[in-house]
Design a protein around this nucleic acid. Structure first.
Lengths: 117, 117
DNA sequence: CGGCATCCAATTCGATACTG
DNA sequence: CAGTATCGAATTGGATGCCG
């Protein structure tokens, strides 16, 4: 009984720690939405800016840098004229897809619910 | 072909809107962690404060009020002496569990990954 | 086009003290 | 115990202008 409680305890602690770790990587108002947009394929800076409604260039730039640092996003500069920059999810970035998808489907559920009350 | 593109377009828009809706409800640094803690069962104010490491009473209080407004959390006052207040997820709050669980398992994956590099 | 620099406003967050 | 009040710090966000 006591052992079971200890197991519960540590499983619970690990759970909380894991959630906190995830939140640290996805912190802020924009990262999840940026990833959600990139989940549909590679995008250029201005495409992303149009896609993630409401974001300012400064923020988009900053958030993309953080995502790159965490290894979730790849940045590629193409030598066009003028230059083009493409962003895409890394393989690791794609591993976030289950979270994104769950959020998307909950959001739809929520919208239905709010509408019907 | 054009029709398919339009379908893709609107599916994509709905996807982004849904993610944004979810983010609006779960906005801020703490809500997900509070819900993650309540997912293990009802808790009192001070238990939550101990569980969600680092949160100040003011924040916890404010976040709980917002979660209650959104119908995700129930607040019950018990007429003990001194009073006790219990918080628990509503049924609707429990519908967030898939998101929380995905975040928890991604967080564990991420911790492994960071450790091994 | 992509994105940095600057300046400024708004919001969030935290520590401390206090109340019923 | 379960909060509220207050203050101040920190973070975030937005507008504009500039550069390669």
């Amino acid at each position: 009984m006591e052992e079971e409680e200890n197991l519960d305890q540590s499983a619970c602690t690990a759970h909380h720690r894991a959630i906190r770790d995830t939140m640290d990587v996805l912190s802020g108002k924009w990262k999840i939405r940026i990833i959600g947009s990139l989940a549909f394929g590679k995008k250029r800076f201005m495409e992303l800016k149009g896609n993630v409604e409401g974001i300012a260039a400064k923020m988009l730039s900053k958030e993309l840098q953080e995502l790159e640092l965490h290894g979730l996003v790849n940045r590629t500069v193409l030598a066009t004229k003028p230059i083009t920059v493409e962003y895409e999810l890394t393989e690791y970035g794609h591993s976030l897809k289950p979270i994104i998808d769950e959020m998307a489907s909950w959001g739809m559920l929520h919208r239905e619910r709010v509408k019907n009350q």
